[in-house]
């Protein structure tokens, strides 16, 4: 049992502050993902973020088994301290999107009205579609309310979800999955739905559906897409703030 002693610090909540393992594991699984993505010639299920998430959870699960503790306990004591440090950097990374946005200020100035209208009207249409799709799949009202605010960033979506009768934790999961899915599927979806012809629309869609990760994807596609995704992240969050509570009320969810 020398391994347990060796790793014991990570399992002791009192010294749970050590962050080295979480940071190491995050980097290791992401780089494995990048490697798999490269050797598989860009197979979409081997997107580094997706591999990192699945492999990371799997390794934590294995280690939790090995040490005989539950997965959430092991996650909290061994991974979270390091994960939180990396997570913090999403703050400056989010405000960094002001730069691709400003670089294409010409597009923003030219189309600001179309952008705002598209996001408001598109959001309302999406809410109806998501509401009825959730109904078809037999989700109860609580779950449906959790599905509605997922276009906003987590920090906005969670309180809105709670206020409209949803479960904030489910909404947070949805926001995370949105980002992971968009990062993995963006290329396929853009091809299937022929979104390339309109860079403004593609950018707004990626920023809305994939949050900041979708925006990072959009930046790779082009400067217009990147700028539009950046503006979508901000505007759609405000739109969700305003539109989702009355919509949920109208549909009788709370």
């Amino acid at each position: 049992m020398t391994w347990v002693n060796f790793f014991g610090n990570a399992l002791d909540p009192k010294v749970g502050g050590i962050a080295f393992f979480g940071i190491f594991l995050s980097l290791a699984v992401f780089l494995i993902g990048q490697y798999l993505f490269k050797i598989s010639n860009g197979f979409f299920l081997f997107q580094p973020l997706f591999v990192g998430m699945v492999l990371g959870i799997f390794i934590l699960w294995l280690m939790a088994k090995w040490f005989g503790v539950s997965l959430p306990t092991f996650y909290m004591s061994a991974y979270k301290p390091g994960g939180d440090i990396l997570f913090w950097f999403l703050n400056p990374a989010t405000i960094a999107f002001a730069i691709p946005l400003y670089r294409r200020n010409d597009v923003v100035k030219k189309f600001w009205l179309e952008i705002v209208l598209s996001l408001i009207v598109g959001m309302i249409i999406s809410l109806f579609v998501i509401y009825y799709v959730s109904k078809i799949f037999g989700l109860n009202n609580q779950m449906i309310a959790s599905m509605l605010p997922q276009a906003a960033t987590t920090a906005i979506a969670m309180p809105i979800s709670g206020a409209t009768g949803g479960i904030p934790a489910v909404t947070a999961m949805a926001c995370i999955l949105n980002a992971v899915l968009i990062y993995a599927l963006a290329d396929v979806l853009i091809k299937v739905f022929r979104l390339n012809s309109d860079p403004v629309g593609a950018g707004l869609g990626l920023g809305t559906a994939g949050h900041t990760v979708g925006s990072a994807k959009a930046v790779q596609l082009g400067s217009v897409q990147g700028a539009m995704a950046s503006i979508a992240v901000v505007v759609i969050s405000i739109v969700v703030d305003i539109v989702v509570p009355p919509f949920a009320h109208m549909m009788g969810l709370f």
Binding site: S26, L90, V213
Partner: peptide, 14 residues
């Protein structure tokens, strides 16, 4: 960004 999102993904373990 994609890398910084790994902890959020792994957070689902919780």
């Amino acid at each position: 960004i994609a890398f910084l999102f790994v902890p959020s993904g792994v957070q689902m373990a919780n």
